[in-house]
Design a protein around this nucleic acid. Structure first.
Length: 239
DNA sequence: ATGGTAGCCGAGCTA
């Protein structure tokens, strides 16, 4: 079973690259972030033509998350609390596993946004106490270690790597979620570049697993293609 | 020290 997470920065613009991903990797599950469209204009037919089921949670212009699966998706839940106005979280049960597509707020636009980021991360941590097989994929907007930053000296004080957000993210790991990447690479393998800073990669996209093992890959070629996202897909092949 | 790009949508916000 292959599961991909990808912040596509507009699902409609990224359809050619998604088609390449589906044709070459044929993933069982695709977790999308920043789909940037309402549900009624989501390119549902495109995915259905490849025999996928969909669970989508859209928003106009910003955010938006989705679960795309070869298997039926049950127990679909959107948002981590009833007050959420931003579409940043969707979970479901598919092929015997719980999966979630998560887009953690960046938190750099205001002090309130930064507070919200920390609250959001703490809600992710407290969501999962069960002993089920769980895969959390998404853009967590946190670089846990300076090894996850190509030029750490240029990112000192950034909301992507403060002690506070690293501490909140650690609370997710403390719920028995395992960062497969650290074990298998342990060195630079970045997932996001600001379009304006192409030589300053960070690893802020994660696949976190609980009671599951697998082999992880960062699909770097999707950054070299026409009209790339600012993130590359991250894929796990379960073992 | 600043601004640099991309996507939303059709100016300015978010990242």
């Amino acid at each position: 079973m292959k599961i991909v997470t990808w912040n596509v920065n507009s699902v409609r613009v990224r359809l050619p690259l998604l088609e390449e991903l589906i044709k070459t990797e044929n993933p069982d599950v695709i977790l999308l972030q920043e789909t940037k469209c309402m549900n009624d204009v989501f390119p549902r037919e495109f995915f259905e033509s490849y025999n996928y089921h969909l669970a989508i949670h859209g928003q106009k212009t910003y955010n938006g998350v989705a679960i795309i699966s070869k298997y039926p998706i049950e127990n679909i839940k959107c948002n981590l609390d009833d007050e959420s106005v931003e579409a940043r979280y969707i979970e479901g049960f598919t092929n015997g596993k719980y999966v979630a597509s998560i887009y953690v707020p960046c938190g750099n636009k205001s002090p309130e946004a930064y507070e919200y980021k920390q609250k959001f991360l703490s809600q992710v941590a407290s969501r999962w106490d069960s002993d089920d097989e769980i895969v959390l994929g998404g853009d967590f907007n946190v670089a846990m270690s300076d090894k996850d930053i190509q030029t750490p000296e240029k990112w000192v004080g950034s909301v992507l790597c403060t002690p506070e957000v690293r501490s909140e993210m650690q609370k997710v790991f403390d719920k028995s979620f395992f960062d497969v990447h650290v074990d298998q690479f342990g060195k630079n393998d970045f997932t996001w570049w600001d379009y304006r800073r192409p030589n300053e990669g960070l690893r802020i996209d994660y696949i976190l697993v609980k009671n599951i093992a697998g082999k992880l890959e960062t699909l770097r070629k999707y950054r070299q293609m026409e009209r790339p996202s600012d993130h590359v897909p991250v894929m796990i092949t379960l073992t």
